[in-house]
Design a protein around this nucleic acid. Structure first.
Lengths: 131, 131
DNA sequence: AGTAGCGCTTCCACCGATGGGAAGGTCAAG
DNA sequence: CTTGACCTTCCCATCGGTGGAAGCGCTACT
């Protein structure tokens, strides 16, 4: 299979697949003409990567997940550990953004938004804001 | 004032302040010895920038906010527009992450996390996951 | 006066995870 | 034989800085 085929079937852009080869996530062989030649196993790995990335796992986490995916002797606890850590990370980010949202909403609500220059948003940013 | 002073008082690393000069957010004059010489006005601007960045405004948004901050004729509606747009962006990000969190939590909850290889997380990533 | 050590300067490279585009080889169809 | 789609490598750009090296200036201590 050429890169265009695996790109279409995995959902990853060809550029990204070349990058993933460069950082060692896949190792396709080469045809006589120099084209990358992907096995169906590579396609599975790329599809796996596309899903894992869309769930926000970092490349490093993906690398580990992929090696666990390929290891039929793995323990599910290893996988769960990575996923739980990532979940905690996402939840932390959510709560940070929620606090940010509250601050911004307060600023926006307090601003008249009219033609006059008086503006609590700018005032707060300048002198000891709510953050 | 030298860069070390404004760094300490504004809360921004010296490296970042040099970068902000490079991209035109501040324009300190120079002393005879070549050192940057910051006015108290620069300090105010840098403090403003530090707060605005910590609220997640992009550099471009900060640039606009800063020019509105310095414009005593500005209308508060211009400021409010930027802040409201940013708030909407943050809220969108929050809901994306919440949906992500739900998917991950489901995967994690369904995984036994024991010594056996059977793992719904890896399975879902491999074959048509929840995402 | 010398020197140690910090602060300042510039410049260059790097991070994650691609995207854009140039310059050129390859293949199948008309 | 040419067109056009596909492939290759290579380099540059993104965003918002951060790290480090090489080399000055300034202060303080001996």
């Amino acid at each position: 299979m050429n890169i265009g085929d695996v790109s279409e079937q995995s959902g990853l852009p060809a550029k990204t697949i070349r990058y993933y080869e460069q950082i060692g996530l896949v190792r396709p062989s080469r045809s006589e003409n120099g084209y990358r030649d992907f096995e169906s196993e590579d396609l599975h790995k790329l599809t796996f990567l596309c899903r894992a990335r869309s769930l926000g796992f970092s490349i490093d986490e993906c690398r580990t997940l992929l090696s666990l995916y390929e290891d039929r002797e793995r323990s599910s606890s290893e996988v769960k550990k990575i996923a739980a850590k990532h979940l905690a990370h996402v939840d932390k980010k959510i709560s940070e953004l929620q606090s940010l949202s509250a601050t911004l909403r307060d600023l926006v609500d307090r601003c008249n938004g009219d033609d006059r220059p008086e503006c609590p948003i700018v005032n707060d940013l300048a002198h000891s804001g709510t953050a």
